[in-house]
Nucleic acid binder design. Structure first.
Length: 224
DNA sequence: CGAGTCAAGCGGACAC
DNA sequence: GTGTCCGCTTGACTCG
């Protein structure tokens, strides 16, 4: 498959970092010398006039290979000519669905049965959707990867913060200049006496260190 | 020979 | 009832 196909699946997906698919398939893929067989097996009982698709017209000789005595399941596989594919792609680009009139007109133009045009559009839509789904899948995988990475990073950060918290903050008594044990952080007796004498509101027990939440940055100097 | 591609068949859902 | 679409599948065909 080359990017040389005139149309390919034109997919537009607003996905950052995703290059638009080069998903051109169709028969350009067979772009090696393989001359496409020109169909005529499915021709609508053609009076057979002008060659609108002269290219590669290996005149269909061996018809009904499967149609041996064994009983054919299917007549033979139709391969659209490059010109037919081109025209179909062109109209697909204009519109992903066809009105009955458009279908009929296109069928006449391409010397196909309307049913074949219809089937081609159905399959084409399916291919487009598949391609789109694959792209979305690819994108989601990338998202998953980066989110996993970020998750790991945040986990590490949490661990670091937890480690910092293991050693409780050393609070010195303002009077003795001695470090107070965490259990005594409610209020030292002297402060308690002072506040009782002045009628100042009793100091609340400071929040335990465990309340320090890394995800809730404390307001500056709220506790101490 | 196996895998991939693609036209076509089939059946169900839906709209009119 | 008819027409259309879609999803799934089949079978012919091609390519490495």
């Amino acid at each position: 498959m080359g990017s040389t196909s005139p149309s390919g699946l034109e997919l537009t997906m607003a996905v950052p970092g995703l290059s638009s698919s080069s998903g051109s398939e169709g028969y350009a893929g067979n772009g090696n010398g393989n001359a496409m067989r020109d169909l005529d097996m499915n021709q609508p009982a053609s009076g057979g006039e002008e060659e609108e698709f002269p290219m590669g017209s290996v005149e269909e000789d061996e018809e009904e290979r499967g149609a041996g005595p064994g009983g054919p399941h299917r007549p033979k596989k139709l391969r659209l000519s490059k010109e037919q594919s081109r025209l179909l792609e062109e109209s697909f680009r204009l519109n992903h669905t066809l009105t009955p009139k458009q279908k009929e007109a296109l069928a006449v133009k391409l010397k196909l049965r309307p049913r074949q045009v219809e089937v081609w559009f159905q399959n084409r839509r399916a291919r487009t959707k598949l391609k789109q789904t694959e792209m979305e899948c690819e994108y989601l995988k990338r998202c998953f990867g980066s989110l996993t990475e970020e998750n790991r990073r945040l986990q590490r950060e949490v661990e670091e913060l937890r480690a910092l918290r293991v050693a409780p903050p050393t609070v010195l008594s303002p009077h003795t200049r001695q470090p107070l044990p965490a259990s005594a952080l409610s209020m030292c007796p002297r402060c308690e006496r002072i506040t009782a004498a002045t009628g100042a509101p009793a100091a609340r027990t400071p929040r335990p260190a465990a309340a320090a939440n890394p995800f809730h940055p404390r307001r500056p100097s709220a506790a101490f």
